[in-house]
Design a protein around this nucleic acid. Structure first.
Lengths: 181, 181
DNA sequence: TGAAAAAGTCAACATGACTGACATAAATTC
DNA sequence: GAATTTATGTCAGTCATGTTGACTTTTTCA
């Protein structure tokens, strides 16, 4: 009875004196909770890969975006991740020390440190994308025919309107670069 | 140029010596990133409510599920949140101390501590649901006609298969309780 | 030449997670 | 009735990841 399946048991009415007072938008609670549980499992995938090598979610995010945008500046990465440079600094130093990321001075502007994945970093990033893509592909398959388009439209629309265009550009830029490369 | 909009600028080809080597599942990177950005903004909503009262995300989750399942046992909450009782303990104590959650001994089994939201806790939980529902409603409106069903199917299918049934039961149980109350 | 930008670093601190050990009360089993 | 198990709570220490604030170095640019 300590399992989540204990919820199968019929609820004891005596212990439920107050109701949850549903409002007009109450039905969307289902989506709120589904989003919570889905995201937890979604980020759980990379966690399993990272745990054995002593890294965490912060490392995942950095490796992912550096691999997706090779040559990215530190400031750009900070904008995407929305963390302070001190937070990023620690994670980035570990990744550089352990040979997952390389930092080279920019040619045009030598103040810049451009970030590149090493072959080792690329391989790890591909692992992350592979496992998360597998989960998404499985989910889309279980849904209807235009599931992918629907999911893309929904998730994009969930993003703050003022960030939406930036995210779209970010993704398109990476896709273009991957096609060209 | 320190803005995310800097990604609008044409990429400097000279600084992009390696390509991102797309694989068979590579296109789903878009969905991976959209999920990341969407979830960030999604949990950012309650953060704004919580910051002024000195609470964090952990408090949000506890208040949400206690309000959704009034009379829930501590062990059940631990199963849902998948954290240790020590972690929950701190957060729960603060919520009880500040009058958002009430803990009463079970009638049938007096070892149990059944968790109920106070009126103050209910009000806060409703605020969370309201702001997140508003975001979801806005997103669904921007999508097609069956956007809601599609989103529900997709998110549910994203959950680990072995947890899926449990999550469905959890949601249905709460909905039933809300209808009855 | 002097201001501004890009990046890095030191120090201190907050949050939310963790492990391990132990305590208490109540229920269950032998 | 005694022993065991269950549900909960708590003390102590640690870790990962975030924060603010202050300061430095290098380089660019007006």
């Amino acid at each position: 009875m300590t399992d989540i399946n204990s919820f199968l048991a019929p609820a004891a009415a005596a212990d439920r004196p107050r109701s949850a007072a549903p409002e007009a938008e109450a039905p969307l609670i289902d989506l709120i909770e589904l989003f919570f549980f889905a995201y937890r499992d979604f980020v759980g995938d990379p966690d399993e890969i990272l745990a054995p090598i002593g890294f965490g979610r912060a490392h995942h995010r950095v490796i992912h975006f550096v691999n997706r945008h090779p040559g990215m500046r530190v400031t750009e990465l900070l904008d995407i991740l929305r963390i302070t440079k001190q937070s990023l600094g620690r994670v980035l130093r570990e990744l550089v020390d352990e040979g997952f990321v390389e930092s080279r001075a920019g040619q045009a502007d030598r103040r810049q440190r451009l970030l590149y994945p090493t072959p080792k970093g690329e391989a790890l990033a591909r692992e992350f994308v592979a496992i998360q893509s597998r989960r998404i592909a499985r989910a889309l398959k279980a849904c209807g025919p235009d599931a992918r388009g629907a999911a893309e439209r929904f998730l994009l629309a969930m993003i703050d309107p003022e960030d939406r265009a930036g995210v779209e550009r970010l993704i398109q830029r990476a896709d273009r670069a991957a096609d060209a490369g």
